[in-house]
Simulated scan of single mutants.
Amino acid sequence: MRRILTILTFALCIFSCETKGTQETKTTTTKTEKESTPKKQFPKLEPNRYNVGFLIMDGVFNTELTAPFDIFQHTIFRENIKAMNVFTVANTDAAVTTFEGMRILPDFNYLKDSLPKIDILVVPSAEHHLDTDLDDKKMIAFVQKVAKDAEFVTSHCDGAFVLAKAGLLDDVASTTFPSDIKKMREMFPKLDIRDNTLFVHDGKYITSAGGAKSFEAALYLCEHLYGKEIAKSLAGGLVIDWTLDGYPHTIVK
């Protein structure tokens, strides 16, 4: 009997040690996971600059995002102007994957973060701007809210469909990607949609054909804000021969 009790006691000790070890391992793992989760870092926004927010989502096209981003970001290297803070905004903290496969970590999540005032909203084109993205009520509401106080709202390529869905183009002229003009007219028959032009500026709205012409639309806004010399300087830094002379564009007075 004594031998049986000894065996049982030994077995209980082993079980207790194993259980304790397992619990310690779980506690250590949980603690390590928490410690390894990086704290979100927001971009540093310098005072006395335009805050330029780029709306991004899965399927955003590289060029319509990076072209104006490059132009606007380079304003910080010019003297005696009100330069631009550029940052991205999305509905997630997770990485956004562009149509071409780049992965971008958004600076702000408009669903939960406290956002700075956006002076210039940029809506690049994305893969589903002609269909499912237009059903995203929270995204459309965000665009509407920002547009109320923004000094400029710009779109590139099919980003114009988002502005149209938000009702922002009801009283202004606009344009979009050349081969999608017909589709846009069908979806929004009451809008004044221009063709044979690479960008349209009407009020605080600038819509562009997109693609590589997104550079020119961004340069135009810089010329509008800073003058020709600054715009030419920004263009020169990216080896772009910039001039509005002979460039197909529409400015509605």
Rank of each mutant, 00 (worst) to 15 (best):
K39T: 14
K40G: 07
K40R: 14
P43T: 03
K44T: 13
P47E: 04
P47T: 01
P47I: 02
N48F: 09
N48L: 07
N51D: 07
V52I: 09
V52Q: 02
G53K: 01
L55E: 02
L55R: 00
L55T: 04
I56C: 00
M57C: 07
V60K: 02
V60Q: 01
V60M: 09
F61Y: 13
F61L: 12
F61I: 12
E64W: 04
L65I: 06
L65V: 04
T66V: 13
A67R: 00
D70Q: 09
D70Y: 03
I71S: 03
T75K: 03
T75Y: 02
T75R: 01
I76C: 06
I76Y: 08
N80F: 11
I81Y: 05
V86K: 03
V86G: 02
V86I: 15
V86Y: 04
V89F: 02
D93K: 10
D93A: 09
D93E: 13
A94Y: 09
T98G: 10
G101P: 07
G101M: 11
L105W: 06
D107W: 01
D107Y: 03
N109F: 06
N109Y: 09
Y110G: 04
Y110D: 03
L111S: 15
K112E: 12
K112H: 10
D113W: 03
D113N: 05
D113C: 06
S114V: 13
P116I: 06
D119E: 09
D119A: 06
I120F: 01
I120C: 02
V122L: 10
V123I: 15
S125F: 07
E127K: 13
H128L: 10
H128P: 03
L130D: 10
D131R: 05
D133S: 15
D133A: 13
L134R: 13
D135G: 06
D136F: 05
K137S: 14
K137V: 14
K138W: 06
K138C: 04
M139E: 08
A141S: 14
